[in-house]
Simulated assay, not measured.
Amino acid sequence: MASAPDPHTGKCTAAAGLTVFAAVMMLIAGFLNLFRGIMAVLHNAVYLKTPDYAFKFSLGGWGWIHLFLGIAAIMIGVGLFRVSLWARILGVAVAAMLLLANFLSIPYYPLWSIVLMALCILVIWGLCTVRHEDG
């Protein structure tokens, strides 16, 4: 005779699944920002010239910002696989900073910025929909 499925087990599985999804998306966003930072620090020619942009930094300055945020995102993405509360909180914070950095650098590399903004929104969604008692 088959036993009835436990609804609580389904909640834990869904919570763990969303956290793993957010971890994978955080790792992808982290690596993409890391590569973007390296390209900017090396002054790659793929970036657009924006002479009258209000948030103008040097290309190297934007590169270092994306490089450091990418490294932080990779480290937190690895920590998210342990489904810990501190990693979820830091994950939301770093994803929000990545979202802001990519928004501010849209004029330099528009398509890449918009794709990374979408990934950051997915990370924030995945980490915020898991309730504390579910994880």
Rank of each mutant, 00 (worst) to 15 (best):
A101H: 02
A22W: 04
T9K: 14
V92A: 14
L69G: 01
L98W: 00
H132R: 13
R36D: 07
R82V: 01
I71N: 04
S113N: 07
T9S: 09
G10N: 14
T19I: 08
I114T: 01
A22N: 04
A2C: 03
A29P: 01
L34C: 02
A4M: 11
T50G: 04
R131P: 00
F31W: 10
M26A: 15
S84R: 11
L48Q: 09
V24N: 10
L104H: 04
T13W: 13
F55T: 02
I124H: 10
K49A: 08
I121K: 09
A14V: 02
A45K: 11
S58W: 06
L67Q: 07
I114W: 12
A118M: 13
M97L: 15
T129N: 08
A23E: 08
A23K: 12
F103V: 00
L80I: 02
V41Y: 04
A29I: 01
A54G: 02
G30M: 06
V78Y: 12
N33C: 10
R131I: 00
L80S: 07
F68H: 02
L85Q: 14
I38C: 05
G77P: 03
C12S: 13
R82T: 03
Y109N: 09
D52K: 10
M26G: 09
L27H: 10
S3Y: 10
H132Q: 10
S58L: 05
A96I: 07
G30V: 01
A73F: 02
G10A: 15
L104A: 06
